[in-house]
């Protein structure tokens, strides 16, 4: 991440994303695969780091072997038909968008307690609390939904593995787009490590103030 100063001096925290070029490596249709989607390949890789089947798969699209392949679902075959195998998508496809959704795999945090994982407040520091300052407290007396019985209710939040899961950040502001170098600059952080792979999509559902701003921008 870095920062970006607007002309009036406001300071925006931004993330620079290398967005593309992506090659359409496969177009899936209802007839052939049971659903509609396009598969994109990103980032060249040495052939010896790929597999023979993948190399051939990418070669069908006329492309060098790619490190990452990812599928994006389409609304029916009509939308999928807009793309053809071998087509190259760049960040220019995102031009004109005010907001994007960004999805990726978050950084793994390992096995974490409830205070970090679920923001529980823990127990008190004193008043007789010993060795349990960060514990979750009571997890219920059982009774699957009532509170009396032999089992703990399903879904009870407890300590466990945290992070390393798919996270989507919705409605990120697009600060600028650099079509020359295929850079997308968005406001705020995105999931995952610096070298993480992200999926960038048109926003599925904007937060209300942003939806209003977009409607206003579309008008004027």
């Amino acid at each position: 991440m870095t920062r970006y100063f607007t002309e009036d001096g406001r300071n925006i925290p931004v993330t620079v994303i290398e967005a593309g070029p992506c090659v359409v490596t496969q177009v899936k249709t209802v007839e052939s695969d049971g659903y509609s989607a396009i598969q994109l390949g990103f980032d060249d890789v040495k052939p010896r780091r790929s597999t023979r089947s993948l190399i051939a798969h990418d070669a069908k699209a006329g492309s060098a072997p790619k490190r990452v392949h990812f599928e994006f679902r389409c609304d029916g075959d009509d939308e999928a038909a807009e793309y053809e195998v071998g087509q190259v998508l760049t960040v220019a496809a995102l031009e004109g968008l005010l907001y994007v959704d960004v999805a990726g795999t978050s950084k793994g945090k390992g096995f974490q307690g409830v205070m970090k994982r679920h923001h529980f407040r823990g127990l008190e520091a004193s008043h007789g609390v010993q060795r349990a300052h960060r514990s979750p407290g009571s997890i219920g007396g059982g009774g699957i939904n009532l509170g009396t019985g032999p089992k703990i209710k399903k879904g009870r939040r407890m300590a466990g593995h945290m992070g390393n899961e798919r996270v989507t950040v919705r409605s990120l502001d697009v600060v600028s787009i650099d079509t020359e170098r295929n850079l997308l600059i968005v406001k705020g952080p995105v999931p995952g490590p610096v070298t993480g792979i992200l999926q960038i999509k048109t926003p599925s559902r904007l937060y209300k103030p942003k939806a209003k701003a977009q409607a206003a921008a579309a008008k004027g």
Partner: peptide, 19 residues
């Protein structure tokens, strides 16, 4: 995926005109 030094160069070039 770009190498670390390339990534740093990209980050620097993005903000270069603001310095």
């Amino acid at each position: 995926m770009s190498q670390l030094k390339d990534r740093q160069a990209i980050l620097n070039s993005v903000v270069a005109d603001q310095l």
